[in-house]
Write a protein that binds this DNA or RNA. Structure first.
Length: 151
DNA sequence: TCCGGCTCATTTG
DNA sequence: CAAATGAGCCGGA
């Protein structure tokens, strides 16, 4: 039984999808129009804290979906401390792969924020985000600034 | 700065 | 199995 919830972040709406009480997806875009289920207190609190700067890491398990390679990438990314960024190449070297493949895996991460893909940037600039969805890059920049990263 | 070649996991035929 | 595709990178013109 899946249920979708909306959280209103400073930069726009976030969609959270739960399945049997478990968070299985978190998207950085969302149409409030759907007026879905109310967001569980626990996550309302966590997100409030995060956007108020009181919470840095969500300490939530990564998605169990995806290929073994993708799991390695997400695992490595989730260990990046807040306020710090790594390049796709840095991640690739750490897990013994190539930068292009790392970018691919990031795009398929279903848990934005929880697995902080926004802390992974290209070597000489911002890089891409969310397979190039509308304002996705603006959101990535916003998140980095929120964590005190100048880019 | 722009452009081609290299790279590696995944997807598609 | 072969070819095409990406949230990249590096070197040359």
């Amino acid at each position: 039984m899946k249920q979708a919830c909306i959280y209103q972040a400073p930069f726009g709406n976030i969609t959270l999808i739960f399945d049997g009480g478990e968070l299985i997806e978190l998207n950085l875009h969302g149409d409030l129009a759907h007026a879905p289920y109310p967001l569980p207190e626990m996550w309302q609190q966590k997100l409030d804290d995060y956007f108020a700067g009181r919470l840095k890491n969500f300490a939530h398990p990564i998605s169990s979906k995806g290929t073994p390679f993708q799991q390695k990438v997400w695992q490595a990314i989730s260990e990046i401390p807040a306020g710090q960024v790594m390049s796709y190449q840095d991640i690739a070297r750490q897990i013994g792969s190539g930068p292009r493949a790392v970018g691919s895996a990031c795009g398929k991460n279903p848990l934005a924020l929880v697995v902080p893909c926004h802390r992974v940037v290209a070597k000489g600039g911002l890089g891409g985000f969310s397979s190039g969805e509308d304002n996705a890059l603006a959101i990535k920049r916003w998140l980095l600034h929120h964590e005190g990263v100048a880019i």
